[in-house]
Design a protein around this nucleic acid. Structure first.
Lengths: 187, 187
DNA sequence: GTCTATAGGCAGATAGAC
DNA sequence: GTCTATCTGCCTATAGAC
């Protein structure tokens, strides 16, 4: 079974890595295919052998995270919506955020990517679903604000040093849960 | 004294308002001068009567907030750096964030604008200065993470409904201070 | 799998009429 | 203060050689 499979194309992964790096610094709209190709040492036309269009780069880069969050929310629908359940959802979202840190550093602050229907719109819908899952049935205005703040705490890890993330994880989770309902993580 | 002054040019303000609206949705790089002009009912060339270049739009839009934060930090340097002082800084930063909400909704998630030396770089330096002012002298790794989380709470108000901001303000401040040092706002 | 060459379009910006 | 017309350059994307 030495079959290569569809995901071990080294060049393809190099393209995605360089694209992510440039997208993160310059934004999606601010990065040209010529820049990506130059960084890799070949020409812009060669990119079109690996990817059919520019937006397929951002689609491929973000799909793993989008799928992970999608699964997260689907699973949470099975529960009762109690505090322990919401804390678990928050923790799972944080862990997904950490393990996809590089992509989120880009996605979190790129209005250009948010325009894309298969990326920005889907991400928007998922975060909205998450927001609703975290908002208890007895939520007043202040509680809804606290949900937004708790998500803000999670999103803040996009700005942290990746090397510090494993150590920071529990501190962030405690902060998020405390913001959400005034007490440390349950469960 | 019926002198008009330099700031009552209606057309100029309309241009800035439309630019901010489009920048917020599409990003700076994703918005063309043609789009801005079309929305206003005149041509792209007319914009150049009011503004010398595209980037002057983003400079004018963001300068008020940048100046406000700059003042904030300058004032905080006079204090002793105690907890009450840090809470006051957090509150002041939140209030500036709220009163410049529209600009921050844009600036907070636009990598294109962050590239600009007079905007993104300056904003980066200011937030870094704020981060340092909020980090106490006896700060360990966890404390530094909590500073980042507290700022994340403030930044989350960029995603809130503007109409809800006055009511949300105290809830957000309490969340930010609790994240920072485990207790409600001092002072 | 990468290349050269090029099509076709739209960007930011300028000149000068009105 | 706004217009038309135009310049220059870079963009995405394609065609076809190697």
């Amino acid at each position: 079974m030495s079959t290569p499979g569809p995901t071990d194309s080294t060049t393809r992964e190099q393209v995605l890595a360089v694209a992510l790096e440039l997208f993160t610094v310059q934004g999606y709209d601010g990065t040209s295919l010529r820049q990506i190709a130059e960084r890799l040492g070949f020409t812009k036309a060669a990119l079109y052998y690996h990817f059919p269009a520019k937006d397929s780069l951002v689609i491929e880069l973000t799909r793993p995270w989008l799928d992970a969050v999608s699964n997260l929310i689907a699973l949470s629908h099975a529960g009762d919506g109690g505090v322990a359940e919401r804390d678990r959802l928050l923790a799972d979202y944080l862990d997904v955020f950490i393990s996809h840190h590089a992509v989120l550093r880009f996605l979190n602050q790129d209005a250009g990517a948010h325009k894309h229907p298969d990326v920005g719109k889907r991400a928007q819908a998922l975060v909205e679903a998450l927001r609703q899952a975290l908002t208890g049935p007895d939520a007043d205005a202040a509680a809804r604000v606290r949900v937004a703040c708790a998500l803000g705490v999670i999103h803040a890890v996009a700005g942290l040093d990746p090397a510090a993330l494993p150590e920071a994880r529990d501190t962030v989770l405690e902060a998020a849960c405390t913001v959400l309902h005034g007490s440390p993580p349950a469960g």
